[in-house]
Amino acid sequence: MAAQTVTLERQKRGFWVQTYLPEIFKGMGVTLKHFFGAIAKPSENIVTVSYPEEQRPYPARYRGRHRLMVREDGQVRCVACMCCSTICPANCIHIEAAEHDDPSVEKYPETFVIDQLRCIVCGLCVEACPCDAIRMDTGVHCSPFIAEDTDDFNALEGELRARERAFYARDLLMEAGDHSRAVQGGRRSF
């Protein structure tokens, strides 16, 4: 089907529009309505969510927590190829590779740390992983604050502790992960 051309009439600006004044009054009306609406019924009309005291509920299928998959023998599936840390736009994945005792595995991550607070939950690490070793699953990142009423709270070092707590190390990430049946090198298996 050939493309059709539709000529739209330019909207005529009448005298009163051109004088600008009535339009200003209309605009003032809109903003005043918003203003007084926000003052009269803040709970209904103000949409701000005061993070972190208030949190927007996440949808049920939200996937906000990383997990590292494991092999059949319970070892980490990751081979420390650094694809995820390379693609990560937030630079939040730190991996140190080491030689594995088993020559068929050869390389494994000695340390694998994800900074949960730096992560922007883009999921590119999952896309980049050639080994189906990292996935994102149900859950959310940890809070950037430590609540004042918990034992963990310490006014002086509170934020520092919260920061440290956000570094999810390999074993913690593996706890959430389970066995993946994906075959390395593509979809086909022998």
Binding site: V79, A80, C81, E106, Q184
Partner: peptide
């Protein structure tokens, strides 16, 4: 073996 993720040459 096409083990590029492990291979240093990749």
């Amino acid at each position: 073996p096409v083990d590029c993720p492990i291979c240093d040459q990749a």
